[in-house]
Design a binder for these strands. Structure first.
Lengths: 189, 189
DNA sequence: ACATTTAGATGACATTTGTCATTTAAAAGG
DNA sequence: CCTTTTAAATGACAAATGTCATCTAAATGT
């Protein structure tokens, strides 16, 4: 509904024309490759392909379409990944549609537009977890048992327990469930 | 952003005038009591007061303002509660804004508008958990330990364990983490 | 070449979690 | 009034989880 409403509103603007609306990342990618729009306004959490995946693919394909991420989530993890994909904007859904239109114009002029919340927030607490720890915690978050994880990663169950203990300590929480919440909230897994 | 965009779009309609926009339930309630609108379009999950709470209060105050719930969540629990509060509509955010405008007109004519998904109730898998079980699982999902939960609910830790065992059985999963995922996914907690 | 760090394993241990059978008292339903 | 249900407690037990100290071998740094 937000997509439709924004589509209509932006189309009302003299200098903006909405040429397509996609309902997921895959569709967005197709449209971009077919229609070569100047700008693509994209959410992150979408079915089939996330907005970040689309941005990354476009970057490797050397697309000239300027990507503006428009999402609810100010997660540092998302933001950082978007920066790596060299998006032209990362805005939050709590602004007004007028501000959005103005940001689109600025991006067309070559500027980059980032929600101020993110720039301050990007002095962020960085992820204290190692790659292995993240891997383990991700599996734990999926409800896997120590045994399942150990055989998936070819480690002993004792090692898995050590990792969990380490993770719980690092995140300064009291059990795996809090560890999962905290890590997900901070975008660390 | 959706609120602002919808506000603008609906205000474009000849026969619709947007007289206020509230950013939470409490504010909505104030506006309704001050301005006596014909219709109030309201989300459910809002800060301070939820849309359902507002609808319930308005019902007891015998307000004449027709409430239309507009939300992302097709949770049977929400829907049922909205029906009890005698709202005039319950629509999902995946329709278009044109359809929404049409629904508003229908409601003004005295009709009631409910998203077909809800009436057909295809997602009608109903919540197998009792109130107590939900309460326990919600706390577990917050990372609380058995001891904390037992003292919060004035139950013994053994009873908490019994509940968790029961919950895990009912949801047909293998541990508390899967139970949390499943219950959250289905909107049961 | 040698010291240091690192990933992983192990074992011992306490605590928490999950399972079950049984009990009690109150509530509900005849 | 007497069953039947229900919410909660208890105890016993196995399994999983969390904590630690220690050990090994490989990778790194200098």
């Amino acid at each position: 509904m937000l997509r439709g409403a924004l589509g209509s509103l932006l189309d009302f603007e003299e200098d903006i024309e909405v040429i397509a609306q996609a309902k997921n990342g895959e569709e967005a990618l197709h449209f971009i490759q077919m229609l070569h729009p100047d700008v693509c306004l994209m959410d992150i959490e979408m079915p089939i392909k996330s907005g970040l995946e689309v941005a990354e693919e476009l970057k490797t394909h050397l697309s000239t379409c300027k990507i503006i991420i428009l999402t609810t989530f100010a997660r540092p993890g998302y933001f950082e990944r978007a920066l790596k994909a060299e998006v032209h904007g990362y805005l939050l859904k709590d602004g007004s549609s007028d501000e959005l239109a103005q940001s689109i114009r600025n991006v067309m002029k070559g500027k980059r537009e980032f929600a101020p919340e993110l720039i301050f927030g990007s002095m962020k607490e960085d992820n204290p977890l190692t790659e292995r720890e993240r891997e383990v915690l991700r599996l734990v978050a999926d409800g896997k048992t120590a045994k399942e994880i150990s055989s998936a990663l070819f480690l002993s169950t004792g090692t898995i327990r050590n990792y969990m203990s380490e993770i719980i300590g690092k995140l300064n929480v009291k059990n795996r469930i809090e560890a999962i919440s905290k890590a997900e909230e901070k975008g660390w897994i």
